[in-house]
Design a protein around this nucleic acid. Sequence first.
RNA 1: GGGGUCGUAGUUCAGCCCGGUUAGAACGCCGGCCUGUCACGUCGGAAGUCGUGGGUUCAAAUCCCAUCGGCCCCGCCA
Length: 598
Amino acid sequence: MPEYSTTSPLPPWLRSDYNGALRAADAGRAVALWGWVASRRDHGGLIFIDLRDYQGIVQLVFNPERDPAAHAVAEKARAEYYLAVKGTVVRRSENTINRELPTGEVEVVVTEAQILASSAPPPFPLVAGSEAASEELRLRYRYLDLRRAEMQSNLRRRHQALRGVRAWLDGQGFVEIETPILWKATPEGARDYLVPSRVNPGKFYALPQSPQLLKQLLMVSGFDRYYQIARCFRDEDLRANRQPEFSQIDIEMTGATVAGITAIAEGMMASAFEYAAGIKLVPPFPRIAYSEAMERFGSDKPDLRFAMELKNLSAAFAGTSFKVFADALGRGDAIYGLALPGACQLSRRELDEMVANMHTQRERGLTWAKATADGNWQGPIARHIGETERARAAAAAGLEPNGTLLLMAGAADEIRPALGDLRLQLAEKFDLRDDALHFLWVVDFPLFEYSAEERRLVSVNHPFTAPHPDDLALLEREPLKVRALAYDMVLNGQEMGGGSIRIHDPELQLLALKLLGFERDEAMRRFGFLIEALNYGAPPHGGIAFGVDRLAMMLCGTESLRDVMAFPKTQKAVDPMSGAPSEVDARQLRELSIKVTL
RNA sequence: GGGGUCGUAGUUCAGCCCGGUUAGAACGCCGGCCUGUCACGUCGGAAGUCGUGGGUUCAAAUCCCAUCGGCCCCGCCA
């Protein structure tokens, strides 16, 4: 049972200093401290307690002869008890200084102490540097997990990044405006989270996947520079870097050009890195076309921390007698290769696994050849490939002696992303990445792509993205060739943000929707409010949105979004602490005219 | 929906392949001793539905099947 030394809800005294802030210069001061017991060392006589707050820990000394009452309190204290103490900061004698601690030159000789709150033994250690508890447990007791120095630092750093963002955008004349969380379901994109309307039985709000249309409407209204740290919701399966609710830095501006927006975004990112990490970025960031990114890296968010680019080897294998390759080329498919340096050796078993994974995960064939020291080839296809082809392919792919060449044949759209994935996996395996920050812009995305599943065009970005002015004539004739005025900011293989110039002409917007399969009536039913708004002097505009959580991940160096969010959900979209989502009372359902048919 | 991996004291793990004493260790916890430690030390102690259910077997933490949960990935996610 907890033991209380006071029944008063009011503390006996307030804090004068943070524990972690005390230094040699404070020696001699009388201080009042609050904090958690990080460690207690009972020598029978003297008791030492490390008292922790978010700024760090300081050593308290309890002397049974000088202050028996305070010492008695220290005897009762246990890990994570919350204490209030009064005492004097004293310089430690030379032989007792702790060089490991920022506060290690001093300690606080305690004269008065009270237990403000006792604590059950924590289910896992909260001491910095202690062995990590399982994430399951950490999420169940998230409030304790967040007490740990690492999580404190992550969330505080995230806050600093947002300060940098706000400072920059404010300086550029942007106005922060909130938009509704209860809004309208959208037909394109991710699954919506729905909220039933009690007042309108049978009807539902949707939580916004992003404030996209709302911010465009604000442009029509004349808030010519808008931003918001907006919560967004998407009901899709989770990943290490995907949560069902997440935050975006949402930006929109009137009179936007691609150059204008990317410059604002670069400045904003520089400000965030400066505030959060003291890192000075040097814009402008390089930009490459989507088509080039796919060709060289098999990804629209290339990781430039290492080279090892994909190579088109179709020409090298032209006229090959190897049937698989010859058939592919005959169909108009391509052959791409990825050359591993000689220093990166894969065992036969590892190669077989890669081939098998490619088969099960992507239903694609993968093959390989190993170069010997004298340039010969070994592997399953080696005997099918002639001398001159080997030489041409090796030269084109940059295959070194002792190197390994991974090969795929098929439609470029399919095999390049597959090889791009392998490129990343191999970089991870062989630790090929440098530790610099490689920012870049990927531009000239296609406006549409063909969805085989839906048998229609779908937007690569979203239906409100403006086509490239040079490609307007192609819109109806060859829509797949139309480039979009869209841009993604990429950092080390992660998409940090993306945006576009928007359509501000209602007729062009209707045409774009028509190409996506929304006839005029349907378009008006779904997006009538936008089309109407565009009829009232909508200025040209565009914008961008950044993932706050991913930005925080980069700044904190974490592998998971969950480590930079206070209360994240598990892969099954559950909060182990509260138990959400949960069943609700029958009465609540009745009020909402909802029947559960499980 | 699919693939992989993990699940054993409060915690982190070992044991599992090759079934067989009383399921171990460390940390934590509880108690004793200890006046300069700082992950204090030291002596002693308590602590486990081996995720759950079923099967095989004389015998299951261990083998098989199913199921639940955590994590990673594919699909999905403008």
